[in-house]
Amino acid sequence: MSRALATAVAAFHLVKTAGLLNNLAAFPTLRRAGRTVRAGRVSLLVPTRDEAGRLPEALPGLLAQDVDEILILDDESTDGTAEIARAVTDPRLRLLPGRPKPEGWVGKNWACHQLAEAATGDLLVFCDADVRLAPGAVGALRDQIDAQRADVFSVFPRQLTGTLGERLLTPLIDDVLLSFLPHQLLDAPAPSAATANGQLLAFSRNAYDRIGGHHAVRAEIVEDVALGRWARQVGLKLGLALGGDLIRVRMYESYGEAVRGFGKSMRAAHGGSDLALAASAGWHLAAYTLPWLRWRDGSLWRASALAAVAQRLLVNAKTGRGAYAEAVLPPVTALAALPVYAVAMRRTATWKGRDYPVPAGRIGDHTTGAR
């Protein structure tokens, strides 16, 4: 049994490393390009709810973009978010008061739906309030949309982390993306190869209308992945890139925030299954923590332990994060993730002061169709 487990863990790391090495070359990163005259209007759309602590840092980057309009929707904030946006004098920026959320909608999806209703652009670029855009970011995004011929395009920003707890959990987003989704598979018919990132997610207006917009995924907590899979199902072309120096984000500012944030979506990502959550937690302990505890028990365990270190180094190099000292963290990362699984075991996800029931279906199951 021990030999079989060691072999399985080593095989897992072999496959993961192969996927990562492929994406080191294949996965594109946004690059600032020269100013190009393009046809079509661009709408930069920002849903906000209690973002007074983050919006001041985001605004300079939003205003530095070559776009036709910047719409900020205030989703019933109680912390002065609207006042911060209202103080901006740029004529492109409009503050929209959000309407009360209807039953059956996730708050962010409802906010994005309202933004799309008000937007006049041919390209709709949804951007979270914690995302920081460098000058030229939207231009670089449009270059990659053209290069990848994408109808739906998203960016995985460079992750900014401050505390040790953030460093343990937040970089796992890049680790999973770059290790298990070869960029070439975005054109594959398999639904599992379709993904998107709602932190920065762009649609042509025609594509957005064709999939039914956020209405089609109104009850989805992990709405971005659902949108990507739904877009694939109706025959649209997906595109992805890393943010590089142009698009960065600090998702959470503490370990506790990271646990709550990842926990709210983890259950849906595991099909609503307690068994799948438990199996995932156990496997990651076996793959990342156990090899160090079994270091003296054979070369397979040692190879797995060192592979995890190499993977973190390669991921951080590809994303441009640096932070190479994080390579020592994989053995404790699986332990640090256990509270995330505990949060995910709950039947209700809580975020931004709202509670949402977590459905037992898979991400991206659609029974209502696009409207």
Rank of each mutant, 00 (worst) to 15 (best):
A287I: 10
A287L: 05
Y288Q: 14
T289S: 10
T289M: 01
T289F: 07
T289H: 02
L290N: 08
P291V: 14
W292C: 06
W292R: 10
W292L: 12
W292M: 06
R294Y: 11
R294H: 11
W295P: 05
W295A: 13
W295G: 10
R296V: 10
D297V: 07
D297C: 12
D297K: 13
D297R: 15
G298L: 10
G298S: 11
G298V: 12
S299I: 15
W301C: 02
W301F: 07
W301V: 09
R302T: 09
R302Y: 07
S304V: 06
A305K: 04
L306D: 00
L306Q: 07
L306W: 12
A307G: 01
A308H: 11
A308P: 01
A308D: 07
V309K: 05
V309G: 00
V309Y: 05
Q311M: 00
Q311S: 02
Q311W: 00
L313N: 05
L313E: 04
L314H: 03
L314R: 02
L314Q: 01
L314I: 06
L314S: 01
V315H: 05
V315E: 00
V315D: 01
V315M: 01
V315W: 05
V315R: 03
N316E: 04
N316W: 08
N316I: 03
A317T: 13
A317N: 01
K318V: 06
K318M: 02
K318W: 07
K318S: 02
T319W: 09
T319P: 01
T319D: 02
T319M: 03
G320N: 07
G320L: 06
G320M: 07
G322T: 12
A323N: 14
A323I: 13
Y324N: 06
Y324P: 03
A325F: 15
E326A: 15
E326W: 15
